[in-house]
Simulated scan of single mutants.
Amino acid sequence: MHLLFATSIVPDGALASGYEIANAAIIAALRRAGVRVTVIGFTWPGKPASDPQNTIVLGAVDVRTESASSLQKLAWVAKAMLSGLTFASVKLRVVTDSEVRAAVERAGPFDGYVLNSVQFAGAFERLFADRPSIFVAHNVEHRSAQENAAAAGGLLQRLLFRREARLLKALEERLCCRARFVLTLAEEDRSALGVAFDDRSAALPLVTCAGAPVQNEPRRIDCDAALIGTWTWQPNRIGLDWFLKKVVPHLRPDFRVRIAGGAPSGLTSAHPGVEFVGRVPDAQAFVRGAAVIPLISTSGSGVQLKTVETFELGLPSVATSHSLRGIDHRPVNCVVTDDPVAFAGALESAVADVRDVDGSAFHRRQVMALDAAIRLGLEKLGPVSQEVFA
């Protein structure tokens, strides 16, 4: 079987975000199932595709809102309003339908599509009705947009997020309806998308690397807690704000917290132990240098890949219940609480008694369940050949 994996950004090997880590895991699982996968989408500027022999590149785009100029943001908003597309999808309309169709035809004979999230599928929706498809819902995007609207500080931003939520809800309904099968990254997302039936969908357990992480040397701990993420992404920012405003004030003054990753300007904390360190060269080495990992998600959907990575590495953690969505197994060194005072207390207790565990069993369990869900989706796609579906 030959499938065309249609995605906004094609893999470049960097695995710099949760989206890229999830894509790598899904593509690898499809190939383990014997599928020939050709990826089609855009690259980041200056970052070539990691597998050019099996990738069709439509061009280079930078879709990050936080790094765009004010003029670019206004252009995106205007184009979205005129086209009726979501803000996320309109950023990809730098090529025409005919150009995308010609690129698809260059892929040669193929049996169906894997529509990877809503951005690319929404930008070129009319092009993907000629063959059967599997839809991969990384998140329940309309719910994330609703949460972003509720958390927005200004009226214009709130209205834009509400518009995004309305359009995303309709788009997700269409993509789920047309798909032979829907793959979500969290069990609860199946119900939220209206496909909570075993013949319509399955949740994908994910891994952050092909093999279980192997640590041959003892950890060198140089801070009490470490967080890393893209804090300009609104669901992540909501969780970080909760942590900084609700949890951190209850930590003792000498408790050392290091926060890595892209952060919006003006993000600060009055706690003397909190340090924003920006981007780090090795994310895994960074988190392994902490006694405990706070898992602080409070909004959004899909799976928290930082939770998966923490469990794979066997690191102690304190987690909100929302951080465990999409996770069926919790290791013994993970404490779960949504109470800020209890969260702070659990962090301090974990630092006082650091307990690592072997994360390889968790990784093996995730891979087995991931492969089983992929096989189920491929079975529902059916034994297709080069027939055309109107």
Rank of each mutant, 00 (worst) to 15 (best):
V195F: 01
K245G: 07
F311H: 06
D199A: 05
A202G: 15
A212Q: 12
F311R: 03
T307C: 12
L240D: 15
T310K: 07
L206C: 07
R200H: 01
L206E: 08
G229F: 08
G229K: 04
K246I: 07
G278A: 05
E188Q: 11
A290Q: 07
L240A: 14
E187Y: 02
I296V: 14
L185C: 01
N236W: 07
C223V: 04
P249D: 00
A203V: 11
F197K: 08
R190P: 14
E217V: 02
A285Q: 15
V248K: 11
L305G: 11
D254S: 03
S301L: 12
R220N: 03
L185A: 01
V303T: 14
P272I: 05
I221Q: 01
L204C: 15
L185Q: 00
S301G: 12
P249L: 04
L267D: 09
T298C: 13
G239N: 13
I293K: 08
T268N: 11
Q234D: 10
S269G: 14
Q215C: 04
F255V: 06
G239Q: 09
I259D: 06
C209Y: 02
A263S: 11
K246R: 15
R237T: 00
V214F: 07
S191P: 07
E275M: 09
H250M: 06
P213G: 04
A283S: 15
V277G: 05
G266Q: 09
R256Q: 08
P218D: 01
A203F: 04
G211N: 05
A196W: 02
V247Y: 05
V214T: 06
P281Q: 13
T208M: 04
G262R: 10
A203W: 05
T298V: 15
S297D: 03
I228P: 14
G239F: 09
D189G: 13
N216L: 04
L193F: 06
V247A: 11
D189E: 09
F286P: 13
S201H: 01
V195S: 06
R252D: 02
I238T: 13
P235F: 02
R252V: 01
Q284L: 15
G262E: 03
A291S: 12
L251Y: 00
P205R: 03
E309V: 07
G262V: 05
N236E: 08
D222V: 02
K245D: 10
C223T: 06
E187W: 01
D222W: 02
F276E: 13
V248N: 03
V248H: 08
A260Q: 03
S265V: 04
W233H: 03
A203C: 15
A225N: 03
N236F: 08
G266I: 06
I259Y: 08
Q215P: 01
D222M: 00
L240E: 15
D282L: 10
V277M: 00
L183G: 00
W242R: 14
L193E: 14
C209S: 09
F197H: 07
G266P: 13
A283F: 10
T232Q: 08
S269K: 08
R256I: 01
L244A: 09
Q284S: 14
L204K: 14
R258D: 00
D198V: 03
F197A: 10
V303A: 13
L295S: 01
S301F: 06
T310S: 11
R279L: 14
